[in-house]
Design a protein around this nucleic acid. Structure first.
Length: 653
DNA sequence: CAGTGAGCGAGCTTCCGCTTGACTT
């Protein structure tokens, strides 16, 4: 018997089919070990041995390892077929260590598509585990651990924040920077003049310039307005064609963006629906997987699928609709371990599976299906027309568009409200009657806040985070109460702003967009053998530790930006065992404290069952044996003295 | 039993990436 170990359980069945009964195929279900939370600063690093990490089995993985160990003991050959990227290489090495495979016939193989030829080719060209690549993963892990644990501890003590990290703190900074831009933005008022005819709307053009006139001075607009007559005379026509390219197949990031735009789905929801489609569902009493792997950074599709797709396009739409594969230029941080997100089979059309899927599943599948098909179709050809009109020596402008060749748009999901657009077809000199002439009062628009989807795009563009962590990073920011979501937009909370300011003031050299890029470069150098893990790790630790102890001395109380209403001194943030509060910096001369409600105190509104006047609030006892104990009491204390130890007891009453 | 400023510092948590689970009262 031969054993093949992959990462994802949903791959095992298919691979076993291709390899036959000689092979057993099992899954590691991702990583199996993590660095321990023990020792100095809980870092789990051996300070007597070059900061080597001390590993521990992940709590949920004992059963997996037992199964793998049993199978590996009976196998004469073991193929480690984890994903072909840095993390996958590390998983292979951990498997080898944990399963005790030294001395056995261990082969590392890789494939980036689940097809029979690809799997057979992989089996016939095995290699050893790439130890420099494993080292580079371990370095990444250690650096993230040091930054994360050290900064989190400091933040907790300094400003009562819960966490910081190379990725989450940069994501937070992106959000708080945007908020500052918005606060700094001053809207300017301006006017436009608009003429509406039976079929179209034209706007006043700026003299000598090729654009709509933004008139800053309203009296100027009113002066022009008085000079205008009630007709437009067509004075010139300028026709052009442009092509409209289809977009490449989905990656995790682009799928989340499209699902957000089209169906208003959150990133976590999109990922969970996609997971369901990937694992498959019962269709006509058969279990069928609908899409390829959903955590990917690649727009690549397999050669086999490409040829299926081109014949599909030719037979369904005709050969004039067949284009070429639109692939994105692979940027540095694309690891390309998986294909793009695409349907497993073109024969399983959205219409066919509709009755077996939930509404969300259908919507997402339909989106993926049409995006994949259109990605290999011809560009659409669009005819554009810019028309100028004269009105008492003032010029108006209107633009029109007409589709000459539908191209890829034929495979796109049509919006329901798409009305055919008006296209001007009239000779120069034609006179149009103006139905309505108006001055539009407008304001310049400030920058927009990020949504989950646009933040993920920004993260991907900056190389921050990975497809498997985009959604969970946003969840972390929410859980830490650094951000809130209102109308799909991400808004930093006070705590989020304080945290980001703190990190910016003292750790700007680590918490910035470029840091990850520099780290990746070093990791690549470790992977190629140019640099050594131990040296990099020790250098980093020493440098970071030095910065940390220097900055610790510099840390001044954070100012809230407000002044004390009693003495006029600056107000600052302080923390005690209950959390963060705002106090006068002039303590102890001035003892003013601004009452702040901590997040924990924001409990659901429950009316006091005793007096029915107040509501329950969270309190802390300060005297006696129970000092420090939390309990719930009536807000109208001391008038009402109702108390209860937990909210669950109130439900029983 | 009740509206948070001593100072020290125990003992808790915290990072980023891979992947699928699903305690019972």
């Amino acid at each position: 018997m031969k054993l093949v170990i992959v990462e994802s359980p949903s791959k095992t069945k298919t691979i076993k089919q291709y390899l036959g009964s000689d092979y057993e195929v099992l899954a590691s279900k991702g990583h199996i070990r993590d660095i321990q939370n023990t020792g100095k600063d809980n870092l789990g690093l051996d300070f007597n041995n070059n900061l080597k990490p001390i590993y521990t089995i992940l709590p949920g993985q004992y059963q997996t390892i037992k199964t793998l160990k049993n199978a590996s003991e009976e196998a004469e050959d073991i193929y480690l077929a984890t994903d072909p990227d840095r993390e996958g290489e590390a998983i292979s090495w951990h498997l080898k260590e944990v399963l005790g495979l030294n001395g056995k016939n261990v082969h590392r193989i890789e494939f980036n598509e689940i097809t029979k030829p690809a799997i057979l080719a992989a089996i016939s060209s095995p290699r050893d585990i790439d130890m420099p690549l494993v080292s580079s993963q371990e370095t990444r892990k250690i650096i993230d651990r040091i930054i994360g644990f050290k900064l989190s501890t400091l933040l907790k003590r300094s400003i009562a924040s819960e966490s910081a990290g190379r990725v989450q703190s940069v994501a937070l900074k992106i959000i708080t920077d945007k908020e500052e831009e918005i606060n700094a933005f001053v809207a300017k008022k301006y006017c436009e003049i608009e003429a509406e005819t039976e079929d179209f709307i034209a706007k006043l053009k700026e003299p000598e310039k090729n654009k709509i006139y933004s008139i800053e001075d309203r009296s100027e607009a009113e002066k022009i307005f008085k000079e205008l007559k009630d007709t437009l005379t067509l004075s010139s026509l300028n026709e052009n064609t442009r092509s409209d390219k289809p977009q490449p197949p989905f990656t995790t990031s682009t799928l989340i963006q499209a699902a957000s735009n089209r169906f208003s789905l959150s990133s976590a929801k999109t990922m969970s629906i996609a997971q369901g489609l990937y694992e498959g569902t019962e269709i006509a009493s058969k279990h069928i997987a609908l899409i390829t792997y959903m955590r990917t950074d690649s727009t690549r599709i397999s050669d086999v699928f490409k040829s299926q797709l081109s014949s599909f396009i030719v037979s369904k739409y005709g050969k004039e609709y067949l284009g070429y594969t639109h692939m994105q230029k692979a940027s540095d941080n694309v690891q390309d371990a998986h294909e793009a997100i695409r349907p497993v089979s073109l024969e399983i059309t959205p219409d066919y599976v509709k009755e077996y899927l939930t509404k969300d599943q259908y919507n997402l599948y339909n989106l993926i299906y049409s995006r994949t098909v259109s990605s290999m179709m011809r560009d659409a050809k669009i005819l554009t027309l810019t028309a100028l009109f004269d009105n008492n020596s003032h010029t108006f402008q209107a633009s029109f568009e007409k589709v000459l060749f539908e191209g890829y748009q034929k495979a796109q999901i049509k919006s329901m409200d798409a009305k055919p657009k008006f296209y001007l077809d009239a000779p120069v000199g034609t006179i149009f009657k103006i139905k309505k002439l108006s001055i539009l009062d407008k304001e310049t628009q400030g920058p927009e806040r990020y949504s989950e989807a646009t933040l993920i795009k920004k993260m991907e563009d900056s190389g921050i985070g990975r497809p498997s962590t985009y959604a969970s990073t946003i969840s972390t920011l929410k859980n830490r109460k650094y951000i809130s979501v209102q109308k799909k937009k991400l808004i930093p909370t006070d705590q989020g702003k304080i945290t980001s300011d703190f990190l910016h003031d003292y750790f700007d050299m680590i918490i910035n967009v470029e840091y990850t890029a520099r780290m990746e470069k070093t990791l690549d150098e470790i992977a190629s053998g140019e640099k050594e893990e131990d040296k990099v790790v020790n250098q980093f630790y020493n440098a970071f530790d030095k910065i940390l102890s220097e900055k610790k001395k510099d840390i001044k109380p954070m100012e809230t930006g407000e002044l004390c209403p009693k003495c006029g001194s600056k107000m600052i943030y302080k923390i005690n065992k209950y959390g963060r509060f705002e106090a006068c910096s002039n303590y102890p001369s001035c003892k003013y404290i601004k009452k702040t409600v901590t997040e924990e105190e924001k409990i659901p509104y429950i009316e006091c069952p005793l007096c029915h006047e107040g509501h329950l609030v969270l309190r802390t006892s300060s005297k006696g044996r129970k000092a420090g104990k939390k309990f719930y009491g009536c807000s109208s204390y001391p008038k009402c003295t109702f108390t209860i130890s937990s909210l669950s007891e109130i439900k029983k009453m």
